[in-house]
């Protein structure tokens, strides 16, 4: 009898967790819909958005530049090592460019952005909630969604595609330097192979679409977790962790889905 009750409570526990998850997802969607009118902040107080682009985009630039350069150099060395076995090292430029533009640029930028800027967004909004600044704004008839949340969301959305493009460009330039100066490849062949193999519509535009989606998703998760955090120091710390974990997994999962569609030529 006692054993039966324990099993029942276990199952109930699973059910409660699933219901909690569904409810959170629903709250997140409702939150996003409520956020849309706040986009008018772009027209009324653009300086708020500019300030947030500085906080999220410009301050993430250094880590993106350094990572992009190193990833490009590593790709050049690793790619050369494999291609030289088939006497195909002339395709190194193409290999590096396709890897960066299609996959590594958007995905690694999104992961770096989630860790560097997404976590900060969540912590800031969560702390504002914990210290009742958001409630104070409402008291003064200032809409916190418009004044605090929307600028951060929009800034992230703008910053990620730009950062991803910079990541890919820097990576390709770094790979070029390694390929020509260290591996002794011909610079002209490096660019020519790249240009003949990289398609603007499929590869470059596909990468841009990916990074736009990633920017939207990371911004959404970050501001929602902050706004939904329990207003305690522990709640804020948990929300920050959840932002990084959830947005990293979301980026990788969405990347798989989008890649599957893009490679089938949709």
């Amino acid at each position: 009898m006692d054993q039966d009750w324990r099993i029942v409570s276990r199952i109930r526990h699973i059910g409660r967790r699933v219901l909690d998850g569904v409810a959170r997802l629903g709250r997140a969607v409702v939150f996003l819909v409520r956020l849309v009118p706040g986009f008018s902040v772009m027209a009324t107080r653009a300086s708020l958005v500019v300030q947030q682009i500085y906080m999220t985009g410009v301050l993430t630039l250094v880590i993106v530049l350094v990572s992009g350069a190193f990833v490009g150099m590593i790709l050049a060395l690793q790619g050369y090592n494999t291609l030289v076995r088939y006497d195909a090292q002339s395709s190194l430029g193409l290999l590096v460019a396709l890897s960066l533009v299609r996959e590594l640029g958007p995905v690694l930028t999104a992961l770096l952005f989630a860790g560097r800027a997404g976590s900060a967004m969540t912590a800031e909004i969560g702390l504002m909630k914990a210290t009742e600044q958001l409630a104070g704004m409402e008291m003064m008839a200032v809409d916190p969604l418009k004044r605090v949340v929307a600028p951060r969301f929009l800034a992230g959305w703008v910053a990620v595609p730009l950062l991803a493009a910079i990541f890919s460009a820097v990576g390709i330039l770094a790979a070029y330097v390694v390929a020509v100066s260290d591996l002794g490849l011909d610079g002209g062949v490096f660019w020519a192979q790249m240009q003949s193999g990289v398609s603007f519509t499929n590869d470059i535009l596909g990468g841009v679409i990916k990074s736009v989606v990633f920017g939207l998703v990371i911004g959404w998760i970050a501001v929602f977790e902050g706004y939904d955090a329990r207003p305690t120091s522990e709640g804020v710390s948990r929300a920050t962790t959840r932002t990084v974990v959830t947005s990293s997994l979301a980026v990788l999962g969405l990347d798989f889905i989008m890649t599957a569609f893009m490679l089938r030529g949709l």
Binding site: V58, A165, I166, Q195, V198
Partner: peptide
């Protein structure tokens, strides 16, 4: 800083479009 950032991002995109892929 934001202006420079946006210009750098667009320049990177232009470089990808023109130098890396042949924009049709």
């Amino acid at each position: 800083a934001v202006g420079l950032f946006v210009v750098a991002g667009l320049a990177a995109l232009a470089m990808l479009a023109l130098k890396v892929g042949n924009m049709p």
